[in-house]
Amino acid sequence: MKTAVIQFPGSNCDLDILHVLKNVLHVEAELVWHRDFKDSEFGAAILPGGFSYGDYLRAGIIAAHSPAIEHIKEMVSEGKLVIGICNGFQILVESELLPGALLMNQSTCFICKWVKVRVETDETPFTRHIKRRTVLNMPIAHAEGRYVNDPEGLKELHENDQVIFRYVNPRGEVSEDSNPNGSMDSIAGICNPERNVLGLMPHPERASEPVLSPFSDSDGLKLLSILKS
């Protein structure tokens, strides 16, 4: 299975995720310019982090109008896997492939720091190898990452088991002070009802080599390794 890393104007974690896929996980992956992307060649796609179109208007909205998104929708309907990381998550939300919205952080500024997220479900193709309630170390780096949804939407997410990651404290508990951006229910990552589209704010590619982690671990690989199959 070949994975496409889609490069939008302003993407800036494209080379990072490509490095991890190719050099750390040794999976087949290719960087594809958004205008050149055709879904048929790929088994999975990653929308990388960054600031597509400068985050102008709303993070992700202008990229959501790229022709690449039509091809992504095609892949999704065929049941292929799509992962949006940070800005990629924002693009998926703005493309209505994932529900809700990502607003400006509670603190009103960009936040870059390592956080802990808890795996809420193992009933997705993305987390099927990770035990439920496992706590992962990953960094966040975003200005617009506060997940919000209306009460019904939120209820639906929980009922359908679509919440995949939540921010937690070192004891693995959801708490006010471990929620870095004010996300509702400390949501850090969700999937679609069909469970083949994942969006998350933390950066697994930045947590894939022990040398880069303050904890000398590589928790991001636990997630990304699903692209090996």
Partner: peptide
Amino acid sequence: VYRQYDHEVGLRTILKPGDADAAVLRIIG
């Protein structure tokens, strides 16, 4: 100040702001 800066992008930052007297960036590969 430094939490407002993305100091991780590029996958090179081994010692991050505040960890040491200087920042340390690896040469990938």
